[in-house]
Design a binder for these strands. Structure first.
Lengths: 164, 164
DNA sequence: GCGGCAAAATTGAACCGTCAACTACCGGTT
DNA sequence: AACCGGTAGTTGACGGTTCAATTTTGCCGC
């Protein structure tokens, strides 16, 4: 038996479409700015940030993948490229023979220090400064909820409860 | 002369990071659901939607590109793939010899009709139903402003020096 | 109606991300 | 100690995206 589809209300649909279009333009702009000004992609920049904030400026590959919500394979490829141009280094993990830690090089750190002010300026310019503070707060709240909801939640309805 | 970088406030940063992480997870989920359930990517689905809403279910390539905020080259490639599997057709534009119009086939329309309810369900499930209505409205407002700001705005590097 | 410039769309190569298979290692069990 | 399911990470092939040409056509002044 089929249930009639519940479509979105007009307001919901408007919000959703604005979100789609807005994020596309926003991400494109930030990525382009970073590439033009500092020859970094947004994903690469994100990785530099996470590493710089970690003790020893180093993180296990899996932790890195989790923190930026990328697949492990993707992190492997990206780190390989970044290692090739000297932004990070890979070391064997001492406590776990399977583990690999990615570690920020001095060059990588400098590159981040150079790029960060311009990137923040872009974010400010494209988002922070153009929306009402209250709306920005709401946006943060909303996306944080979305993230929490999707993060540990497999598409499989059977696994909706956790015990870790 | 260098001006001290104005970083984001703690609240702004939290909102921004939630946005980054949340959109990554959200887009991944919607794309995955569409692929698993209907063998469509999210960009393909978006194209089907735009075409279905247009008179004659047809749009010029450039209009299509604009409406989903994709590059023309990207639209060309995507439409080529979609044409190869029978979802759309390309016709020469009658009024402009350079123009090409992409047109939804019956198969493409049926595919959209099949996919739409599930996709809406995914959007509901991952976003609409998990955030406060007021926050969703704010999110829509914010991203709509962002889009308007970035859309017709050239990334001209000369204009990047600003005094806020 | 000709020459030159701009726009519409395509092309192919290079680049990035995904996927499934694979290697290596951990930890508990027997 | 050999086993075995599970985890960490890598690999290479494939598919999608970007980028810098290239082609074709429209448009405008002369």
């Amino acid at each position: 038996m089929t249930v009639a589809t519940r479509w979105l209300t007009s307001d919901q649909q408007k919000a959703w479409r604005s979100f789609l279009v807005g994020t596309t333009l926003l991400m494109d702009r930030l990525d382009r700015d970073l590439r033009d000004q500092h020859d970094l992609s947004l994903p690469e920049y994100e990785i530099l940030v996470r590493l710089s904030e970690s003790p020893e400026r180093a993180l296990r590959m899996a932790e890195l993948a989790d923190s930026v919500k990328n697949s492990r394979s993707r992190i492997t490829h990206t780190i390989a490229r970044m290692e090739a141009i000297g932004l990070v280094m890979r070391r064997q993990c001492s406590s776990d023979g399977r583990g690999v830690v990615a570690c920020l090089t001095d060059a990588g750190y400098s590159r981040l220090v150079e790029a960060a002010p311009d990137h923040v300026e872009s974010v400010r310019d494209a988002l922070i400064n153009v929306v009402q503070p209250a709306d920005l707060a709401a946006l943060g709240r909303a996306m944080s909820t979305v993230a929490r909801r999707l993060d540990t939640d497999t598409p499989d309805p059977l696994l909706s409860s956790r015990s870790v």
